[in-house]
Design a protein around this nucleic acid. Structure first.
Lengths: 189, 189
DNA sequence: CGGGGTCTTGATCTCAATCAACCAATGTGG
DNA sequence: CCACATTGGTTGATTGAGATCAAGACCCCG
C-alpha cells in the first residue's frame, strides 16, 4: 500500500491520502481526532483482515491506547483526511466526555449494522450518506473499501455505482481514482 | 409480546424470560448490568424496528441514560436473563471504567459486524459462540431474533439450524420453543 | 375451542457471488 | 525511454445461496 502521510507543521496534524495507513494493529501510539475525511478500522485476524469500524469527521480513533498503550485495530484512510492527536484531559474533563463517546459508539454501531442490510444500492447510499453528513461532496472511497464495509463484492459495487450514477441517484464527478460524489438523492433510509 | 419480568427481592435484580422487554426507547430509566443471558437492543425507526446491538453477561446496557436520562434503544431478552441496576461510581472510579467500556464497545462492534458476513451457517455459529462465551449451554433465541441479528430470514435460519443440528455441528437439546444448544463445534471463526 | 405466535417445509425466483477477461493509470528497474 | 508488473476499475456470462411466497404443524393461552 502506498502510504502518503504528510505532517502538518502545527499541532502534530497529519494528512492522509485515500488508502494511506494511519497506524497498524499492535503498534504503540496515541489517539487521534478525525478533522475531515473518513477512516476505516480493521481487525487483523490470522484468517485475513476484517472490517471493524468507521470513523468520520469529529470522531476519535485509537482511544484504546489510553488503556492498553497499543492499537487494537488498524486504521486506513477511506478518503483524503486530516487528523490531530487527541488526548483526554486527565481530570479536567468529567465523566461527560466518556459518556458522550460511549453513546456515540453505540449509535455508530447501529449505523454500521444498517450498512449490511437491504439491497446493494441502498447499502451504498447509506454509506455515502454517513460519510457525507456534514460536508458537501464526498470523495468516493475505493470500491474495495466500499465492498468490505457493505459486505458486497467489488464487481457488485462497480455495477451499482455505475447504475446509480446513470439514473441520477448519485452525481459522480471526476474519473478513475479521483471521483467525488456531489449529491446523494435524499430520500431517507 | 408477552412480558415476564420478575423482580428479585434484593438489589433490584430482575429476571426476564426469552422475548420479554427490559425497556423501550424513549422511556426514563437507569443503566443495567447483564448478569446472565443476553439482550438485544433495537433502534425504533418510523420504518420499523432495527437491530442495533447485543449485550451478553458482563455487559452494561442503557449507559446513555446517565447522559440523556432516557433510553436510546429498546431492550429485549434473547434468552432468559437476569440483570441488576448499574450506576457509575461517581469519583471513586477513574477514567479506567469508561475506557474499558469504550474498548469493549469497539470490540463488540467488530463482533456484530462479523455476524453479517459469510454464509448462513457460519453467521449462526458465530452468534451462538458469542452468546455462549462464558457459559455452558446457550438457550436458543427465537428464530426471528437470530434472523434479525444475522440479516437472514426466519425460513433460512430454521433450515440452517436443522441442518447444523443434523450434521452434528450443533448439539441442540429440547424441542420447540425451549431449545438449548449444548455444544458448538469449536473450529474457529 | 379458536386464535395468534412460533416453527417447519416446499417450490420458485432473484440478486449478488463467482469466474474470467480486459482497460487505464501508476510505478519500477534496466 | 521502454518493457513490465501492480493496482484500481469495468464488463459479461453463469451460478448459487438465500429471499420470497405459500401452506401447514405445533403449542400456549384466554
Amino acid at each position: 500500500m502506498k502510504v502518503n502521510k504528510s505532517h502538518g507543521l502545527e499541532h502534530g496534524t497529519v494528512s492522509l491520502d485515500r488508502g494511506a495507513s494511519l497506524y497498524l494493529a499492535g503498534e504503540k501510539g496515541h489517539a487521534w481526532r478525525v478533522l475531515s475525511g473518513s477512516i476505516r478500522l480493521d481487525q487483523e485476524e490470522p484468517t485475513g483482515t476484517q472490517f471493524a469500524g468507521l470513523a468520520v469527521a469529529g470522531d476519535v480513533v485509537g482511544a484504546e491506547t489510553l488503556l492498553f498503550g497499543r492499537y487494537t485495530f488498524s486504521a486506513h484512510a477511506l478518503s483524503p483526511c486530516s487528523l490531530r492527536p487527541w488526548m483526554a484531559a486527565p481530570e479536567t474533563a468529567g465523566n461527560g466526555i466518556w459518556l458522550q463517546m460511549i453513546a456515540a459508539a453505540e449509535r455508530r454501531m447501529a449505523d454500521l449494522l444498517a450498512l449490511r442490510c437491504g439491497k446493494a444500492a441502498e447499502r451504498i447510499r447509506k454509506l455515502l450518506a454517513l460519510m457525507g453528513s456534514g460536508g458537501r461532496g464526498v470523495a468516493l472511497p475505493r470500491l474495495r473499501d466500499i465492498a468490505d464495509i457493505t459486505d458486497l463484492t467489488v464487481e457488485t459495487v462497480s455495477r451499482t455505482v455505475t447504475s446509480l450514477s446513470a439514473d441520477g441517484t448519485l452525481d459522480v464527478q471526476g474519473s478513475y481514482r479521483v471521483r467525488k460524489v456531489r449529491e446523494v438523492m435524499k430520500e431517507a433510509l
